[in-house]
Amino acid sequence: MGLFDLLARWPLLRQVKTGDATALGETAMSERSRSLEPRTARADRVVKSVCPYCAVGCGQDVHVQDGRILDIEGDADSPVSRGRLCPKGSATFQLVTGTHRVKDVLYRRPGGREWERIPLEQAMDMVADRVKRTRDATWEATDAHGHDVRRTLGIAHLGGATLDNEENYLIKKLFTALGIVQIENQARI
Rank of each mutant, 00 (worst) to 15 (best):
L174I: 11
L13A: 06
E26C: 03
D148R: 14
S78W: 10
V47F: 06
W139H: 08
E121D: 09
A76M: 13
D104S: 15
Q65V: 06
W115S: 07
V96D: 00
L6F: 03
P52F: 08
P11R: 15
D148Y: 05
V127N: 02
A141H: 03
A21M: 09
H147W: 07
A28K: 04
L95C: 07
A187Y: 00
P11Y: 12
D61I: 02
L12H: 01
F175D: 07
F4V: 15
T176M: 09
T99F: 08
Y53I: 11
F93W: 02
K88H: 01
G25L: 14
M1W: 06
R130F: 05
R135P: 03
F4Y: 12
D125W: 01
V105S: 06
Q94W: 09
L153S: 05
V102Y: 04
T40A: 02
G160E: 06
W115Y: 12
R101I: 14
H100A: 15
D75Y: 05
I118C: 05
W10N: 14
D164N: 07
Q60I: 11
Q15P: 00
G111Q: 05
T27R: 08
V131I: 15
L170D: 05
D77I: 14
D20T: 14
V96F: 10
A141L: 09
F4P: 02
V80S: 08
I118M: 11
G160A: 14
S30L: 08
P38C: 04
N168V: 13
I155E: 04
A141M: 08
M29L: 08
T152N: 05
P52G: 09
Q65E: 03
V105D: 05
E73I: 06
S35E: 13
C54M: 03
R82I: 12
T152G: 02
V105K: 11
E26Q: 11
V64C: 09
E73Q: 04
I171V: 15
V16P: 00
E184M: 02
P110W: 13
M29N: 01
G83Y: 10
I69W: 04
P38K: 12
E167F: 03
I171E: 10
Y107A: 15
E114H: 07
D20P: 07
H147T: 09
S81E: 01
P110G: 08
V64I: 15
V50G: 01
G83R: 10
G154Y: 05
G59A: 03
T18P: 00
A55E: 02
G112D: 12
S33Y: 01
M29V: 02
V80W: 04
R113G: 06
S33V: 04
I118L: 10
Y107M: 15
E167W: 04
A141W: 02
Q122G: 04
A41H: 00
G154M: 10
R130S: 11
S81N: 05
A144Q: 08
L70S: 08
D148P: 03
I72K: 11
G146R: 09
E31L: 12
E26V: 13
R84I: 14
L170S: 04
I72E: 05
G83L: 11
L120W: 13
S49M: 12
S90C: 06
Q65D: 01
D20V: 14
A187N: 00
P11S: 14
A137W: 03
E26A: 12
L70G: 05
L158V: 13
G98F: 03
R42M: 00
V47G: 01
N168A: 10
A23H: 12
D125I: 07
S33N: 00
T27I: 10
A187R: 05
G112N: 13
